[in-house]
């Protein structure tokens, strides 16, 4: 039975809204509302201490009275601001599946926005194309805002050429408050540009989660016979024997990925590669983990 976040299943769903809900329910199915416990200031309940709990949350008064190790749990905080920066460059149109990288990015973005809406968080959206921000939706909360975001994602053109890192920088300039920036892009620009953009965001006090959407063919380069490669963005076509250059391509590709990963990690930004043939779950879990970490830091 396919997972709710399986891209094949999602691809069959006609509307992005429905896709996002399906993906999120697939991830959180069976749980109550507000299942996520965090480090907000609104007390929720006591519970037994288990190794690994933050010692700061021990309730010393209860311990003194009952000699039991009890920790305090709080209702999650709902005033997190998440900025979704979705790369709509022409290269995101590339696909060897039934869906393109952009399709996958929009599904992921919609699902994350759904999660933010569920948590009552503010969500902003930047739709970029090449180095430009094509469409900007300021951060708001609520069901209607989410639907607005979804409509924007569905209707945005996928076009433009340029380094997506520049678009990220441009988008950061429009962010009114500090928050969690989720950048959905193939990151096919220069790795140092991406690192600089991330540094700028970090410097502005944003937290950054980079979800790199890649087609499996970009990762494995599975072409066999003589092929003329037409660029989706800029540059000249290349006619070559893919088998002859495959090894070198993979090396260059991995080198770029490693440089990107290393630069982002150095900035304490999270980086996750998302092949479009993998379930959305990976991206969502990454987002949730990042969100929890951010909330922990804020509770300090």
């Amino acid at each position: 039975m396919p997972q709710a976040s399986d891209p094949k299943l999602l691809a069959r769903l006609a509307r992005l809204e429905l896709r996002a809900k399906t993906a999120v329910e697939g991830l959180t199915g069976g749980q109550h509302r507000s299942p996520l416990r965090g480090a907000s200031t609104t007390f929720a309940q006591h519970r037994e201490y288990v190794p690994g709990d933050d010692l700061r949350h021990l309730d010393w008064r209860v311990i003194a009275r009952s000699d039991r190790h009890i920790v305090r749990e709080f209702e999650e905080e709902t005033d997190l601001t998440g900025y979704l920066v979705v790369d709509g460059s022409a290269s995101m149109n590339f696909k060897t599946q039934e869906w393109s990288k952009y399709d996958y990015a929009t599904w992921t973005a919609a699902a994350i926005a759904r999660l933010l809406a569920i948590q009552n968080d503010n969500t902003g959206l930047a739709l970029t194309g090449g180095a430009e921000v094509n469409h900007w939706i300021p951060a708001r909360r609520g069901e209607r805002h989410w639907q607005h975001l979804v409509e924007a994602l569905e209707s945005a053109p996928v076009d433009g050429a340029g380094d997506p890192a520049e678009a990220l920088v441009a988008a950061s300039g429009r962010m009114e408050r500090r928050g969690l920036v989720i950048w959905l892009s193939d990151c096919l620009g220069r790795a140092d540009h991406a690192t600089k953009a991330a540094a700028r965001l970090r410097h502005a006090g944003h937290d950054l989660l980079v979800l790199r959407i890649l087609d499996p063919a970009e990762i494995d380069f599975p072409y066999g016979r003589s092929t003329r490669f037409e660029p989706l963005e800029l540059g000249e076509a290349l006619l070559l024997d893919p088998r002859a250059v495959r090894q070198a391509y993979l090396e260059e590709f991995e080198k770029h990925g490693a440089e990107l990963r290393r630069g982002l990690r150095a900035l304490n930004a999270d980086f996750r590669r998302l092949p479009t043939d993998e379930p959305l779950e990976a991206g969502l879990v990454e987002f949730l983990a990042r969100r929890a970490a951010r909330l922990r830091r804020r509770g300090r």
């Binding site: 096919l188 003329r228 989706l232």
Partner: peptide
């Protein structure tokens, strides 16, 4: 040859 629109041209 086959013709392929490709993204990671760089």
């Amino acid at each position: 040859y086959q013709r392929v629109d490709f993204s990671a041209m760089e």
